[in-house]
Nucleic acid binder design. Structure first.
Lengths: 105, 105
DNA sequence: GTGGAATACATCATATCACGAAGTATTGCG
DNA sequence: CGCAATACTTCGTGATATGATGTATTCCAC
């Protein structure tokens, strides 16, 4: 998919991946892969950004001798998802503008 | 609208604005405004980029003593629009992944 | 007839951001 | 032992949207 198009989905996609309960980086990537591929460096950048924005919280825990960071969505994060749904309506309006001519085919 | 979300639409939106016949910068902005707002500097940057990519051609003509640049879509530009429609299908898949939980409400 | 809005385009600096590359460290399997 | 998988981090780079600013003309209101 076009990178630019992808950009708008990355953040909300990560939030969506933890909306049912906490998860961790490596698992999030695997879970999202069928829908949207992203590199590890991208994901961890996004997770940091979302944390800074108060959209998720982090806790570190040991699992099989390895450290894992578990991410949990916050109210603000859920609000972002709700906002996204509104923005999507605008997206659809623009989409119809873009494809209008080929519509009659 | 969220800037990141907007990014994926800007280029195709400009192409869509000239798909029915040539137009010029100032008019494109006005025409797109109800759907997607962009600053002038953004538009002219995009027009230059699309020209470099061979998705549109430019001709300069005088109109009421002022110079205008008229932009015309190319075959490659139309191909980009067609490609966008395919990408949109992927976008819809991701969209459904994002809103899946709230769907049942 | 002067000032300001509208028309029309250009350039520059800046901030954001996705990503590849590379690294660290452990577990588990053949 | 070696290699894949797990798990996270850091750095540099390139792309890009935008505000600020500038140039130049036309048209309308006062």
């Amino acid at each position: 998919m076009d990178i630019q198009l992808k950009r708008g989905l990355l953040d909300v996609c990560v939030l969506a991946a933890i909306q049912d309960g906490e998860s961790y980086g490596y698992r999030i990537i695997k879970e999202m892969k069928p829908y949207l591929e992203m590199s590890e460096s991208t994901l961890y950048t996004i997770l940091k950004r979302l944390e800074t924005a108060g959209m998720l919280t982090v806790r570190t825990a040991e699992h099989d001798g390895r450290l894992r960071k578990y991410y949990r969505i916050t109210e603000r994060g859920r609000a972002r998802l709700a906002e996204f749904r509104e923005e999507w309506k605008e997206m659809m309006t623009v989409y119809r503008f873009v494809i209008r001519e080929e519509n009659g085919k």
